[in-house]
Design a binder for these strands. Sequence first.
DNA 1: TTTGACTCTCACCTTAGGGGAGGTCACATA
DNA 2: TATGTGACCTCCCCTAAGGTGAGAGTCAAA
Lengths: 301, 301
Amino acid sequence: MANEVEDSPSTEVSIGEFSRRSHLSVKALRLYDELGVLAPARVDTASGYRYYDQSQLPDARLIAILRQLDFPLAAIKELLGSDPLVIARRVKEHWREVEVARVAQNSLAEYLINQLSGKESAMYEVATREVPERTLLCLKRNVDPENLWAFGKEFIAILRERHLPKMPGREGGMFSIYWGLVTGDSDGPVEWCKPIPPEDAEALASQNPDLALRVEPAHSEAYVVLPSDPDSSSPQWQLAMDALQNWATAQGIDDDELAIQPADLGLRFTYFAAEPITGNNVPDDYSDFAAPFAYPDSMSR
Amino acid sequence: MANEVEDSPSTEVSIGEFSRRSHLSVKALRLYDELGVLAPARVDTASGYRYYDQSQLPDARLIAILRQLDFPLAAIKELLGSDPLVIARRVKEHWREVEVARVAQNSLAEYLINQLSGKESAMYEVATREVPERTLLCLKRNVDPENLWAFGKEFIAILRERHLPKMPGREGGMFSIYWGLVTGDSDGPVEWCKPIPPEDAEALASQNPDLALRVEPAHSEAYVVLPSDPDSSSPQWQLAMDALQNWATAQGIDDDELAIQPADLGLRFTYFAAEPITGNNVPDDYSDFAAPFAYPDSMSR
DNA sequence: TTTGACTCTCACCTTAGGGGAGGTCACATA
DNA sequence: TATGTGACCTCCCCTAAGGTGAGAGTCAAA
């Protein structure tokens, strides 16, 4: 009994003992061996018995903690030999992602609870607005869902760098138009647009040859304000689209006349970030989701 | 095309169309059918084709949202016919549980990042204290891990009801002793104890015949302060135990002399809740994890 | 009637292990 | 030395919530 601890060279322990010390189950240890995440120090060729070394305990404990934090084993395997600071950074990153996802879920839960409780929440309520004729500088591209928001950030970076003139109010904010589906298989195209003063159109267009100059005619839009956080695969988009769809049906607007058909076509996502990015004076982040529509004959213009 | 919407009796749609409207994949819809969560309104006996009714859309959307919130399908199945208020309550409960788990993970992540970054965090640092002889009223029981904390709450309820006299300082707080393992297979026993003034011992013992009267001898304890939140299966317990174990090894205290061997035996979990519960005047919740030990011969007493 | 889109079932894959069957190994006791 | 007992081995099946693909049948429009 005292033999096990006595001499430090023979620090080998059986899988059961190692399991107790590391708080990892025997089953888990065998799995980690099989996957190459944590191989025993020695495997007896005759019996197949696994023997672990004391020096493997820190690794095992690290694995135990990372698993508690829902790190996948594949990631742990890659991380295990790395510098502690690298691991710390990855843990931070991972945890931030989890946090972001949780915030999105939180607003969804809040919405659901409100709905179920019969409270009329202001979330996902549809309103309409008249959009005047606007002169736009645009960048269109095909992107798949993963790169969607990256494209948005790229456009933001371009705007920041070019110092485009400020435009007042929300009509001056940047927005994106979905000219096609961006749901998994299909990839857009998606167009990011920034309104500019019409009088500067030609000058700015020649200064920014990579951006397309367009004039968008005046039109009406039905829109839904999104609760914070513009992330691509967020469930909020679905709820917002459903809200628009329901509103259209209730108003008697035919699908053909609303820019939701087919699917996402022509939908606009407006995004204001804080001051230095959009170059307008809306203080906080704001985003909405809008569908241009034609008034049905029954509605008075 | 207009036919589909025109007359309300024929509101049947194919699985693909229903998938589009509900934002549930065709695969998921077939699974929900198989599991009895959401059966199609009609299944063509000859072809096996599933046809859904428009009226099933609200249910389908509810399922979609609940799945986004990680509700298991089994729970959704039970919930689906219920009153909206009942569902709202369950969503709240579920979300609170998720929140609690996330908080525990958060402190774990924080600890890990500190450790990896080489910062000496004050978390899980071992200290020692001398505990004087104490007179205790105790309740011992075998519990499995799920009921562990429930047992603690029960003891709290008893204390609250009996109005036991206050005791000053941390030595007056309630604590539990693990007389055996509570890890999955084994179930304790676990004993909850409340120190009382020695002079009131006989009177209180006769007033509380369901509680055992014991006198605990003076001893030393090594202890680790836990960061908030006393939940049973929390990873914090493991870290705290590891810290105690490491400390003991570093101090040259033999395992036999520390109450960690075998396994959890004799470990104490001290818990102070806010004022009205424990009947002492520690303002905030506080908990620690302690192991009584004998000083090794080499250490001066 | 043909074509193309849609749908069906069936079977296998994913993550991170848990549970158990049947067999082997190591150690302690009679 | 025999034997019991517990620890350990491999192998197989199971979980939840679908995703992916094969091969076959069905629906609706041209």
